[in-house]
Amino acid sequence: MPFDKKTLFTAAALVAALGAGFGIAKLSDRPPVAEAEAEAGEGHAEGGGTEVKLTAEQARAAGIAIVTVSHGGAGDLRLSGRVEATPSARAAVAAPVSGGVVQLLVAPGASVRAGAGLAVIRSAEGAAVRAESIASGAEADAARAALAREERLFKAGVTARQDWEAARAAATRASAEAAAARAKVAAFGTPGESGTTIVRSPIVGVVTSLQVAPGGFVGQGGPVAEVTNPALVEVVFNAPAEAAAKLRVGAPLTVLGADGAETKAVIAGIAPMAQNATGAAVIRARLSDGRLTPGAAVSAAFSTETGGYPTVPSEAVQTVGGRPVVFIAEEDGFRAQPVTPGRSGAGFTQIVGGLKGSERIAGRGAFVLKAELSKGEAGDED
Score class of each variant (00 low, 15 high):
Asp4Ile: 03
Lys5Trp: 07
Lys6Tyr: 04
Phe9Ser: 01
Ala11Val: 07
Ala13Val: 04
Leu14Cys: 05
Leu14Val: 07
Leu18Pro: 03
Gly19Asn: 00
Ile24Asp: 02
Pro31Trp: 02
Thr50Asp: 14
Glu51Met: 10
Ala56Asn: 02
Ala62Val: 09
Ala62Asp: 11
Ile66Asn: 06
Ser70Thr: 13
Ser70Glu: 15
Gly72Val: 05
Gly73Phe: 02
Ala74Asn: 12
Gly81Pro: 01
Gly81Trp: 02
Arg82His: 06
Arg82Asp: 03
Pro87Leu: 01
Ala92Cys: 00
Val93Asn: 02
Val101Lys: 00
Gln103Lys: 13
Val112Trp: 10
Ala116Ser: 07
Leu118Val: 08
Ile121Met: 05
Arg122Phe: 00
Arg122Leu: 08
Ser123Gly: 04
Glu125Val: 04
Glu125Ser: 09
Glu139Ser: 08
Asp141Arg: 09
Ala142Ile: 03
Ala143Pro: 06
Arg144Gly: 06
Arg149Ala: 10
Glu150His: 07
Phe154Gln: 08
Gly157Val: 02
Asp163Gln: 15
Ala166Met: 08
Ala170Leu: 12
Ala171His: 12
Thr172Ala: 14
Thr172Tyr: 11
Ala174Trp: 14
Ser175Thr: 15
Ala176His: 15
Ala178Val: 09
Ala181Pro: 14
Ala183Lys: 13
Gly192Phe: 09
Ile198Tyr: 11
Ile198Glu: 15
Val204Ala: 15
Val206Ser: 08
Ser209His: 03
Gln211Tyr: 00
Gly216Glu: 06
Gly216Tyr: 03
Phe217Gly: 05
Gly219Thr: 09
Ala225Pro: 05
Ala231Phe: 06
Leu232Glu: 11
Val235Gln: 01
Phe237Trp: 01
Ala244Asn: 01
Gly250Met: 07
Pro252Arg: 08
Pro252Met: 06
Lys264Phe: 06
Val266Trp: 00
Ile270Tyr: 03
Ile270Ser: 05
Met273Thr: 12
Gln275Ala: 11
Gln275Lys: 04
Val282Cys: 03
Ala285Arg: 05
Arg286Ser: 14
Leu287Cys: 10
Ser288Ala: 11
Gly290Tyr: 07
Arg291Leu: 12
Arg291Phe: 09
Pro294His: 07
Ala300Ser: 13
Tyr309Asn: 14
Pro310Val: 10
Val312Tyr: 12
Gly321Ala: 07
Gly322Ser: 06
Arg323Lys: 15
Val326Lys: 01
Phe327His: 05
Ile328Asp: 13
Phe334Ile: 01
Arg335Val: 09
Ala336Leu: 01
Pro341Tyr: 11
Gly342Ser: 04
Gln350Ser: 13
Gly354Gln: 10
Ala362Ile: 07
Val368Arg: 14
Leu369Val: 12
Ala371Asn: 15
Leu373Cys: 09
Gly379Pro: 01
Gly379Ile: 13
Glu381Gly: 12
Asp382Lys: 15
